[in-house]
């Protein structure tokens, strides 16, 4: 039985709802689904590439949550546990549906190779206000660029920069070390930056 005075449990917004469900009020489970359905669907859309896979991921994730909720011991926040299940569902689905060899990104590929590639000033797009910059076209460019990231890097970027998990939480969700998360995140961001640089240089 979890101890409600445990600080980790106190911080978990879902504690009372989960306790009620586990005490037999399973009719409250749809409320837990409602809390995370939209966020998880969008996570699925960023990870799975198509609507069908995102919907399947959502269903499979919540079915697993329903099945295993009674075993949840608050060793982490419920949200982190949920994303851990979602991530593993996504990875299984992707591996089942298509063979996509994973590419490793190296830091070297993002270093300027020639004198001409070294910037002589900060480009204008880097200092414009976001509201002025982020139109529909740029949103699709960013979405496509995120989709084109190798999966291991995309997962880290999506969890850290879009879902808003901390380095430690992302490490917990993915079962990796914080150092590993930092390395992957940096390379993923550099990859995205290259895509944006290309977009803005064509746009200029």
């Amino acid at each position: 039985m979890p101890n409600p005075s445990d600080p980790k449990i106190k911080q978990d917004d879902d504690f009372e709802l989960i306790q009620a469900i586990n005490a037999g009020h399973t009719e409250l489970f749809p409320e837990l689904v409602s809390r995370y359905e939209r966020k998880l669907y969008n996570f699925g859309m960023r990870m799975c590439r198509d609507v069908q896979d995102a919907e399947d991921m959502l269903q499979d994730t919540f079915l697993n949550v329903f099945r295993y909720l009674k075993d949840f011991r608050y060793e982490t926040r419920f949200k982190n546990w949920l994303y851990r299940i979602a991530t593993s569902t996504c990875l299984k689905k992707r591996r089942k549906s298509r063979f996509a060899p994973e590419r490793e990104l190296s830091l070297d590929e993002f270093l300027p190779r020639e004198e001409a590639e070294i910037p002589v000033q900060t480009p204008a797009w880097a200092s414009l206000p976001l509201d002025q910059l982020l139109n529909e076209e740029l949103s699709s460019i960013i979405k496509e660029s995120i989709q084109s990231l190798p999966e291991n890097y995309r997962l880290v970027l999506v969890l850290r920069d879009i879902e808003g998990f901390s380095t430690a939480e992302t490490a917990q969700v993915l079962g990796l070390t914080p150092e590993n998360i930092k390395v992957r995140l940096h390379r993923a961001r550099l990859f995205l930056r290259e895509k944006l640089k290309d977009y803005f240089s064509h746009d200029a």
């Binding site: 976001l130 995120i146 970027l157 961001r189």
Partner: peptide, 9 residues
């Protein structure tokens, strides 16, 4: 440029 990339993301 990296700061802006993260902000856009």
């Amino acid at each position: 440029t990296l700061r802006q990339t993260v902000a856009l993301c």
